[in-house]
Simulated scan of single mutants.
Amino acid sequence: MTSFSHLDKDGGLSMVDVSSKPDTRRIAIAEAVVELAPETLDLLKRAALPKGDVLTCAKVAGIMAAKRTAELIPLCHPLSLNRVDVRFDVIDTPPRVRIETEAVTTGPTGVEMEAIIAAQIAAATIYDMCKAVQRDIVINRVRLLRKEGGKSGVFQAPALD
């Protein structure tokens, strides 16, 4: 029978005890993609949207979200983050913003969730700041790209088109 790490002996939810795990440097990189209309992307690039500088606001939102991940995901450990970064690739064809986030810590558990939450909240912030001019924005391809550290070592996601 498979044992589940987040269930206690009675089948109830339980936070995993990581106190006996060694501290290692851990890095996680995630992405999200926000699909926009060409006109919306043009306004974003010119900082001409009604709510202002979209990418600066989305960067700050992503960093703030990473720092609060344990408050959002019930069994996620609160981490001391050494670094969080949010980067953007503005692509004209097809019109989209690719978000890449990176979270780094030294500790007994990984930072995958912090990187993923940062990407999702940065994407949601782009949506929020662009919705005045476009309602059919699509957020997709939220995924872990890479993780390093810990017992399981390195994970590298396969490349997508």
Rank of each mutant, 00 (worst) to 15 (best):
K59T: 03
A61C: 03
G62Q: 06
M64S: 09
A65Y: 00
A65K: 07
K67R: 07
T69I: 02
A70Q: 02
A70H: 12
A70K: 03
L72A: 02
P74E: 15
L75P: 00
L79S: 03
L81Y: 08
N82I: 05
R83H: 14
R83F: 05
V84Q: 10
V84W: 11
D85R: 15
V86S: 08
F88H: 11
F88C: 12
F88Y: 12
V90I: 13
V90E: 11
I91K: 08
T93Q: 15
T93H: 14
R96E: 09
V97E: 06
V97S: 10
T101V: 08
E102G: 12
A103I: 13
V104F: 01
V104S: 02
T105R: 07
T105Y: 01
T105E: 04
T106S: 12
P108I: 08
T109M: 06
V111M: 07
E112T: 09
M113W: 02
M113S: 04
M113I: 10
E114W: 10
E114Q: 12
E114R: 09
I116M: 15
I116H: 05
I117D: 00
A118I: 04
A118F: 03
A119G: 03
Q120Y: 03
I121M: 14
I121T: 12
A123C: 03
A123V: 07
T125P: 02
T125G: 05
I126C: 06
D128P: 02
M129P: 01
V133N: 13
Q134S: 11
R135H: 12
I137F: 08
I137T: 09
I137R: 12
V138S: 06
N140I: 00
V142L: 13
R143A: 06
R143Y: 01
L144P: 00
K147A: 10
K147M: 09
